[in-house]
Amino acid sequence: MGTVTPPAPVPLVEELGWIPIDEAGGAGVARRVAVDCARRLGFSDERAGEVAIVAAELASNLHRHADVGSLSVRCLRAGPLGAVELVAVDSGPGMADLVFSGSDGTSTAGTLGIGLGAVRRLSSHSGGYSLPGRGTVLTAQLWPDRGAVRTPVVAGLTRPITGETVCGDRWAARERDGALLLLVADGLGHGSLAAAAANATVDAFLASDLDAPAAIVQHLHRVVSHTRGAAVSVARVEGAAVRFAGLGNVAGTIAFPDGERRGMVSMPGIVGHQSRGVREFAYDLPPEAVVVLHSDGVSDRWTLKDYPGLSRQDPLLIAGTLLRDAGVRRDDAGVAVVRP
């Protein structure tokens, strides 16, 4: 097979849901959802079969090793191409050497241990982060061709409140003149109306050609007034600088590997309904730092110091780890990460 490079470094993400892997049947559900996504995207029968293998292996690994685990299935779209993305998150015993554990013939449960090696071989891109006693996050991205792809510098992950199937938190990103613009929206409340507010906010953000965070937030405030409203933050990342604006309690943080965190200032209000003014702030972004935006469904009691090496990993692994450990079950939760 040849190498496929998606034309857009920031694919659009369609969340297909989280599948709890608390019994053996969960692997079958995950496989069916992933294959349905692959067929919808026009994958060949052979490639759809490889998607099935990867989904089944990730789900089976969760069932065998994790105390609590779930699998997120997502459709990615980048121009005319689409991909299936899988995120496996667990709070199990973790692995001291994830690379070794993913090698063919290696197992921590007395089995053949081919699962994670197969995931790595069949995926266009895959990754993992694990800490003993904390759990593991594994990701796999499968484009129509098995060839390598560019990994975006930004990624996000959302999860609905327990008992809901739709999430009122959403994230989106787009590029403009060499700068990356990132948005996180937290629709007021929960359920379908909160999701509708967040969806309208994201749609308006993606359709706009504005590139200043304050101007974007002001624009959103005007155009989503037909919804129940949302807390919104927007970050513009370019080189060693971040510009930030927000209304409401979507947190923006510049985080460092040593645990230092610099909070970015959001103004009180609800996009679409209440605003006493929007202000934009500028911050330095050192090379070792990452930008994290998250809704109030993610506790702010996290620090990268607790996760050695995590800041050097793919943004999706950072987002998945923070969502697992800092996300609260009594609220929708969403987190997005830029790792320049």
Rank of each mutant, 00 (worst) to 15 (best):
L58M: 02
L58S: 05
L58W: 07
A59E: 10
A59T: 09
A59F: 09
A59V: 14
N61F: 04
N61H: 04
N61E: 04
N61M: 00
N61Q: 00
L62A: 01
H63G: 11
H63Y: 14
R64L: 05
R64A: 00
H65D: 05
H65G: 09
H65P: 00
H65Y: 15
H65Q: 10
A66L: 04
D67T: 13
D67E: 01
D67G: 07
V68K: 03
V68R: 14
S70N: 12
S70M: 12
S70Y: 15
S70P: 04
S72F: 09
S72C: 11
S72A: 15
V73E: 03
R74H: 02
C75F: 07
C75A: 15
A78I: 09
A78T: 13
A78F: 08
G79V: 00
P80C: 06
L81K: 02
G82E: 04
A83P: 01
A83Y: 10
A83M: 01
V84K: 02
V84R: 00
E85L: 08
E85D: 08
L86Q: 06
V87L: 13
V87P: 04
V87M: 01
A88K: 01
V89S: 05
D90Y: 02
D90V: 02
D90T: 10
G92K: 10
G92A: 09
P93W: 13
P93Y: 13
G94W: 07
G94Q: 10
G94S: 09
M95E: 12
A96D: 03
A96S: 00
D97T: 14
L98F: 14
L98G: 15
L98H: 12
V99D: 15
V99C: 09
F100E: 15
F100I: 15
S101T: 15
S103R: 15
S103H: 11
D104M: 02
G105F: 14
G105K: 05
T106M: 11
T106I: 14
S107A: 06
S107T: 08
S107H: 07
T108W: 13
A109R: 13
A109I: 14
A109E: 15
G110S: 13
G110A: 04
T111H: 14
T111Y: 05
T111N: 04
L112C: 13
L112H: 12
G113W: 00
G113E: 01
I114K: 11
I114L: 13
G115D: 10
L116F: 10
L116V: 07
G117V: 02
G117Y: 07
G117L: 01
G117S: 04
G117N: 03
A118T: 00
A118H: 04
V119I: 10
V119P: 09
R120H: 13
R121L: 03
L122N: 02
S123D: 05
S123I: 00
S124H: 08
H125K: 13
S126G: 08
S126R: 03
S126D: 09
S126C: 04
S126K: 11
S126M: 09
G128T: 06
Y129R: 04
Y129F: 04
S130M: 10
S130L: 11
S130K: 15
L131P: 00
L131R: 15
L131N: 07
P132L: 15
P132G: 11
P132W: 10
